[in-house]
Simulated scan of single mutants.
Amino acid sequence: MTIVIVDDHAMVRSGLRMLLSSKGDIEVVAEAADGDEGIKSALEHRPGVVLMDLSMPHGKDGLTAAAELKRAWPEAAILILTMHDDDEYLFRAIHAGAAGYVLKSAPQEELLAAIRTVAKGDAYLYPTATKRLMHEYAERMKRGESADVFGTLSEREKEVLALTAKGYANKEIAERLVISVKTVETHKSNVMDKLGLKSRPELIKYAAKKGLLQFE
């Protein structure tokens, strides 16, 4: 079983490499310090599992990288490794195409089990996450909600969605939100991908449906 480790902390990568390499059936074939490098390494080595950190402040974060990697290589088995025991991140990871989600605080045995599970093509969620996921699904069904993924958008993605629908150019959005134009483009691409939208008219129609077109 081959693995690519993607984490912005060198000490974390070193510790994971030592742990995984000590197992006879696992080989770490590459390491990466950010999302862009992780995508490149994964596409180069085509590992059995991509172990992806969620929060990487420099370059692409884990969720963005996971979504891009899945578009480029749909067969990729991505296991998100994170300190965030948070429902929003969990649902966003699933929507990004991750095959598993495990906490950094988990015992080594759980991490190894998660790796072997996603390597076989199965999904893995830590036990309490599975319980919460089932509860959330049941509650949505009780309320008669459809499988609308609007709730999986981050607050920043919702802001970009609303401003784009109102006709603001990328540069104007960047200035209003005090972010770079490249970041705006990334958020916009993620929004279109998550919502399954193909064109600007579709985006405007969706934003109107969600009540996002109120002008100041």
Rank of each mutant, 00 (worst) to 15 (best):
V6C: 01
D7R: 04
A10D: 14
M11V: 14
M11P: 03
V12D: 05
R13I: 06
G15I: 12
G15T: 13
R17T: 09
M18Y: 05
L19V: 11
G24T: 11
D25W: 04
I26L: 15
I26M: 15
I26Y: 04
E27H: 07
V28W: 09
V29E: 02
D34Q: 14
G35S: 01
D36H: 12
G38C: 09
K40R: 14
A42H: 02
L43F: 03
P47F: 05
P47G: 01
G48K: 04
L51D: 05
D53Y: 02
S55H: 13
P57Q: 11
H58V: 14
K60S: 05
D61I: 09
L63H: 03
A65Q: 10
A65L: 09
A66W: 00
A66K: 00
K70G: 10
K70D: 08
R71F: 00
E75S: 13
A76S: 15
A77Q: 15
I80N: 01
L81S: 06
T82K: 07
T82G: 02
H84P: 00
D87W: 11
D87C: 01
D87Q: 14
D87R: 13
D87I: 11
Y89Q: 04
L90I: 10
R92I: 04
I94Q: 11
H95F: 01
A106H: 02
P107D: 02
L111Q: 10
L112K: 03
L112D: 04
I115L: 15
T117C: 13
G121F: 08
A123T: 14
A123E: 12
Y124G: 01
Y126E: 14
A129T: 00
T130D: 12
L133P: 03
M134R: 14
Y137T: 13
E139C: 10
M141W: 06
M141Q: 14
K142F: 12
D148H: 10
T152F: 09
E155W: 00
K158F: 05
L161V: 08
L161N: 07
L161H: 09
L161M: 15
L163P: 05
T164I: 06
A165R: 11
G167C: 09
K171E: 15
I173D: 06
I173Q: 02
E175F: 06
I179A: 02
S180Q: 08
V181E: 14
T183V: 02
E185V: 01
T186K: 13
S189R: 15
S189V: 00
V191R: 05
K194W: 00
L197T: 07
R200K: 14
P201Q: 03
L203R: 07
L203F: 11
I204C: 05
K205M: 03
Y206K: 07
A208H: 07
Q214D: 13
F215T: 13
